[in-house]
Design a protein around this nucleic acid. Sequence first.
DNA 1: TGAATAGTGTCTCTCAGACACTATTAG
DNA 2: CTAATAGTGTCTGAGAGACACTATTCA
Lengths: 241, 241
Amino acid sequence: MANAIYDPSDFPAVAVTVDLVVFTIRDGALAVLLVRRGIEPGAGRWALPGGFVRPDEDLDAAARRELDEETGLGTARLHLEQLASYGAPQRDPRMRVVTVAYLCLTPDPTTPVAGGDAADVAWTAVADLDETDLAFDHHRILVDGLQRARAKLEYTPVATSFCPAEFTVADLRRVYEIVWNTTLDARNFHRKVTGTEGFLLPTDRTTVNPDGGRPARLYTRGHLDLLYPPMLRAHHAPDRH
Amino acid sequence: MANAIYDPSDFPAVAVTVDLVVFTIRDGALAVLLVRRGIEPGAGRWALPGGFVRPDEDLDAAARRELDEETGLGTARLHLEQLASYGAPQRDPRMRVVTVAYLCLTPDPTTPVAGGDAADVAWTAVADLDETDLAFDHHRILVDGLQRARAKLEYTPVATSFCPAEFTVADLRRVYEIVWNTTLDARNFHRKVTGTEGFLLPTDRTTVNPDGGRPARLYTRGHLDLLYPPMLRAHHAPDRH
DNA sequence: TGAATAGTGTCTCTCAGACACTATTAG
DNA sequence: CTAATAGTGTCTGAGAGACACTATTCA
């Protein structure tokens, strides 16, 4: 932009929106928050929640406002970060729209999705979606968000963002297993996460298991924002035998 | 954006630009490509290269075009990826400008920077810049780009993007040392990078060292796009004694 | 020859993964 | 008691870091 002249006639009308990839874990599966479109194009189709950035609003603030409007979730416990921007000229057929996508991870909300001007809002299992189910390029954004979430579980403690304020090591392990779509050795996982200083803070409380089993200690998330050494998933091709 | 009405009067005039954080290694230091602004605000100050996204141009294409215009570098050998977007309401005093920042890594160009409409263009050592040297929020963008570049050296082979087509293991090690601002054990580094299948492809040629020393084998970059296991830098606080 | 740089061998320590084993609950 | 889940101990193999040593060049 260094030498540009700022005359509105120099550039076309561009709309800037934020779109949100909001993940949670419901019924043992990774789910994403979707809204049903009420207007053309793509009326009746599902899409990511989002909306215009307002004149005096920063991008992060717009994302947070849209999230509040569409979910009614308190902003406290959830993780929100910028994902990427998408601006292909024809991604919206009506006009040029550049969207800044955000990734949000939240615990399973006990209250069903509330408020907002979106008529129909639902959590949908990511595994049940295919490329043609979402409007615009939202499937691409979703896939990028999924990849980012999977990667961040490795080297940050964001997996705790899927858990309630107090949770067990098994709860956390199930988050990893669901998001990575894999199984982990419960014993090694326990040793690893409890051994990483600052990842989890033990409380003096425990859960009760309904049909037997030793009670599990409850933890809250610690202060770390980077896991070192990281949690590992297999990146190499699995061995054939 | 699901339920929004697309009437231009619904949103303010917004300009979308791309800005580029272009890094190279010059004279043993990490350097960034800067242009000197010719117009207000910030006339005479340095800024990141960039410009408007054109009406029928995707964001990536705009970044690549700006890069070509300002540097004249062939697009072949260089790494270009989206970094993040910045849209604070007052980041440009004249109007609302949302910019999509890109990160680019390139070998040291032997030809000085060419072309473009920027009058004054220069490679500047990153270490010589401080927070007040750049216009707008460009210092923040630069810092984000630096952090991204440092992180990507860990788990991808992008360090080779700083090297010419053929390079030695020592060349590659110097890239790591400069970008991470650290020193690495040359022998362990050699064992590590040559032992990672697909990172480097050996040629049958060698360099000649001007004042003695065994010739070094030349390599080209391999096909890998993810390093596993990653290159490690110390993330923990160094031990006191 | 010596200085300089490239590259290998080897030891130790940490840690991931496999998995036997102990601990604590409900019924 | 048994079933179930939580949590520990221990071995093995891979790999990072330290660093002695060999290899190959120029002056």
